[in-house]
Design a protein around this nucleic acid. Structure first.
Lengths: 185, 185, 185, 185
DNA sequence: TATGAATGAGCATTCATTCAT
DNA sequence: AATGAATGAATGCTCATTCAT
């Protein structure tokens, strides 16, 4: 039941937004009563936090796998980009909620999630730095800004990319990698 | 008065979000009463629409100026990137509201704003296509995807870029142009 | 309207208790809606505080009148006892709410009301001390304890005394004064 | 277990009030679940009734002991006052719950408790009447009113008297007896 | 132009209670 | 003897909106 509530909530939050989705909406979809919701979650915000933590923890874990394998930094970066894009196909709604609704977390929870988000970004930045040191990337790059740019390209996809449309997720990931590695000129 | 309401609202919507800002909040900040608000706006949503339209119309107008000048497509693209980044310094709050709160427009208004947003994107895409035709950009590029990527890089900046921090807007625009043109390898 | 809400609330709080009286109960009795209640009061607790403050302020003011007149301390004490008993006839419900529901005030408000209550008690104590000094009362009395005893006798009346029953308020006040002055032996 | 629930409940009801204490609060303090509560008590109100009955039955029993011994009425009255005051030290929380929360009993139970309370009061009144007949007390006294006054003095102590403070319970009982017997003049 | 009073629908949350196991 | 899942009704409170003045 707890997981049912969570999954349905993700879909509703994605479609209507966190503030616009009432507990009533959630439990009605599941055919249970509000009491049931509060048996499993202490508040609406706690549910949102739960969703956030699952999402970012999963992402961090998979990033770790990439980070620790024996590939070149260029290859690692390519894999991370693919990971993020392909995630839209697999966990699109979670991702949208994650990127849009963080504002509704209470201060303490927001801080915790922010820390994890930044850890992901810092890891990305570290791969870029490493790549520069290994002469895989241009030496005049600023790793911090480049990391933000890459996250911009990938995260923005959540706003428009439809994985069941003309372009496949794999394809999009390759196009983006090529753009980031080689530019358009 | 009408403009006062609009400007204060932008600031409040940016800070607290549209749903979380009440009409009461807005009029209290201005020292007037709710009646006054409804004298100038027929609804909260109409105010949001007003904000959206001003923002995107201004952007389209400035895009038009870039588009019609006699520069190379590469130079035009560079100018558009700069335009978007520098806008954060000048109209940051409006931009944040624009990117975050479109969901709260009613269907008809959302459609209208979407049309204008897409017009901006299509214009960007056209510049890329033109550049390919003129051999300024690689011929195998897919202009549509590249346009989304560029918007991702620039629009995502609204989420983290602080124009009064270490990096200036000018500098960020140059770094981003360089990334997009030449890549990181 | 604000005063209507207050008066009706006093009656409901007296009859059913503060916690057991809902805002719905209050507004229904008045034929208005909840919105109206919250137009005049920011919370249920604020309404309770309002009731408390009116009550104790009125009492303190009347105590002051007694305290400042030119009578003997014995006479002053007699008048204070009468004041408290006769108040049951005039403001019984307010008094009951005052004595029973203070626990529902928030910390800050409770402290403020407590301070006023204690002021009343201290004034009573002062009259007793003064009376001892003037040889009106026995010299071995402990004014603090006596003050508590007197308040016990009078305040407890709120729990059983029915001013429209057999014994009149005037009569009860005289019996109580006699008891306190002369005892039962 | 049943008694554990009762004792913890008394403490919680005293601290937070009956309405403000939830079954959840009670069982959490004991480390059991709600089911356990409902195994021993059929309702929250029944638990309150149980507390009330224990308290007043104990008081009546001890009153009976005093009533039946061979002392003068004056001495009996003195002992009853002491009994009530010293009870604050021994069963303070129960007493506070008893005096404050009777309102939450259902009609039938309230009637039963009221009957017992009145029995206590009537017994007190009888001792006074007896004392008058025996010329121990003034003959013009009205026993009913005097009984109420005595109960006011003693019961009100529950609101302020701290048995571990400066004044001991024994001492307070003596001061109160003296006041009631001899007055302050 | 602006106010102030009022509405009514909705919301997150609480809680005593039930009941199959 | 005790649990854990679920209910459903109620509660305090918010808020966009209306409207007579």
């Amino acid at each position: 039941m707890k997981n049912d509530i969570k999954q349905k909530s993700i879909l509703l939050f994605e479609k209507k937004g966190f503030s616009e989705t009432s507990i009533q909406d959630i439990v009605e979809t599941l055919g249970v009563t509000k009491g049931t919701f509060y048996y499993y979650f202490t508040s609406k915000e706690q549910l949102l936090m739960d969703i956030h933590v699952s999402y970012i923890d999963d992402l961090l874990e998979r990033q770790e796998t990439v980070r620790l394998n024996q590939l070149s930094n260029r290859k690692k970066l390519e894999e991370l980009i693919a990971l993020l894009i392909i995630d839209i196909a697999n966990h699109g709604p979670s991702g949208k909620v994650f990127f849009r609704e963080m504002r509704h977390l209470c201060e303490d929870n927001a801080r915790e999630v922010k820390r994890k988000r930044e850890k992901f970004r810092k890891n990305l930045e570290a791969i870029i730095s490493e790549g520069i040191a290994q002469n895989e990337f241009k030496k005049e790059l600023e790793p911090g800004i480049i990391a933000f740019a890459i996250l911009g390209v990938t995260n923005w996809s959540y706003q428009w990319f439809n994985p069941s449309g003309e372009i496949s997720a794999d394809r999009l990931a390759r196009v983006y990698s090529d753009l980031i590695f080689n530019g358009i000129v």
